[in-house]
Nucleic acid binder design. Structure first.
Length: 192
DNA sequence: CGCCGGATTTAA
DNA sequence: TAAATCCGGCGA
């Protein structure tokens, strides 16, 4: 899969791809692109630090970070090595391992929103900081695999980035599978 | 070294 | 609508 181009195209490419960890397989339904030379919403905006160092590494690695004191967020690093780009996985559908996911999510039954939300995705896959820097393209552990691309892609502004410049807040770098229910706030999206 | 605030979720 | 909850980044 092509993760080396622009981060917004890489984000669209990741829609429909599969995340596999143990007996759990998720299909990506919602993503957001971050990074590039000038993106005031990106964790890379202040340069490399111990936390975001993986963003400058080769594409196909996982970037895990802890947020709001309680949630882990899964990103897929994209772009050429030396350029900080990453795609936040915001939503997914359970393809396999539902019982494991229900246990981790502390849910009784499956709903379309079971893994709709970045914190939910990482929790469903059983991820934490130990997976930061993990190679998603190599076999073993957490893997990113090919999957059917969505027939329709929706796009809109990214969420939760009030600290960014107005220009970057408007930038339509959030993408979703137009036919999936595992997408939050679908009303703010329009066909790509 | 201390403060500010965050790429969120959940329940009331 | 607010609380939970903690660490990274920045300024002093």
């Amino acid at each position: 899969m092509n993760l080396a181009g622009s981060v917004e195209l890489a984000a669209q490419t990741l829609l429909g791809k599969l995340l596999v960890h143990g007996d759990v397989t998720l299909r990506i339904t919602e993503v957001e692109a971050y990074g590039g030379p000038e993106d005031s919403a990106s964790h890379a905006r202040h340069g490399p630090t111990a936390r975001n160092a993986v963003m400058w590494g080769p594409p196909g690695r996982a970037y895990l970070y802890f947020c709001y004191g309680m949630h882990w967020m899964l990103n897929v690093v994209t772009g050429p090595e030396g350029v900080a780009m990453a795609v936040l996985v915001r939503g997914a559908e359970v393809v396999a391992g539902l019982d494991t996911v229900l246990g981790r999510r502390k849910a009784v039954k499956a709903t379309p929103q079971l893994c709709a939300g970045p914190g939910k995705v990482a929790q469903a896959l059983g991820l934490d900081g130990a997976f930061d820097g993990h190679d998603l393209l190599a076999p073993g552990g957490l893997e990113l695999r090919e999957g059917p691309p969505p027939p329709r892609i929706m796009a809109g502004p990214r969420l939760g980035i009030a600290f960014a410049t107005a220009e970057d807040q408007i930038r339509p770098w959030r993408f979703a599978d137009g036919d999936s229910q595992a997408v939050l706030h679908g009303k703010f999206l329009q066909p790509l």
